[in-house]
């Protein structure tokens, strides 16, 4: 297998391209490894532990002392508390949008008004999560050009 590393300009978006005859387990493994370099969280599902790449996470929600990590079509449980995630993920394009939810800003498709001065985020899978009034000014500030 030939490996090519090409230097590109600062203004260009970094990318990794894999040329393969077919997308098999070997390719999936390489993709998983690359994604893990962008950060991972550990989550459990049916008593098995999984490494979840940060870019795949839609949002993290705390429900009755438990924390759940939601992906496009999957959900994992975590033993960590929401505030612990907040500390780690705030610099990784995630933001706290309510008392119980941290959302991946990269997975929001649009923002809509909701009742009572609140807003809701429409995620890439069509799910909606509420931005509570308290967090609206922080989110506005963050999106306006705050820390990326």
């Amino acid at each position: 297998m030939e490996i090519t590393v090409k230097k590109i300009g600062e203004s260009e978006k970094e990318y990794i391209e894999i040329g393969c005859h077919r997308k098999d387990e070997r390719v999936d493994e390489i993709v998983r490894f690359i994604r893990s370099r962008e950060g991972i969280l550990k989550g459990t599902k049916e008593d098995r532990q999984y490494n979840i790449p940060l870019p795949d996470i839609l949002y993290i929600e705390a429900v009755d002392e438990k924390t759940f990590i939601y992906l496009q079509n999957d959900c994992y449980e975590s033993g960590r508390r929401l505030y612990e995630f907040e500390g780690v993920l705030i610099s990784r394009n995630f933001a706290r949008i309510s008392k119980s939810v941290i959302v991946n800003l990269m997975k929001i498709d649009s923002i809509r008004p909701s009742l009572n001065g609140r807003f809701s985020c429409v995620l890439t899978n069509g799910e909606q999560v509420i931005i509570s009034r308290k967090y609206v000014p922080d989110i506005k500030e963050r999106l306006k050009g705050g820390s990326v």
Partner: peptide
């Protein structure tokens, strides 16, 4: 919300 969505896309 419209302004926030535009800012989000830029972000």
């Amino acid at each position: 919300a419209k302004v926030m969505t535009e800012d989000l896309k830029r972000f």
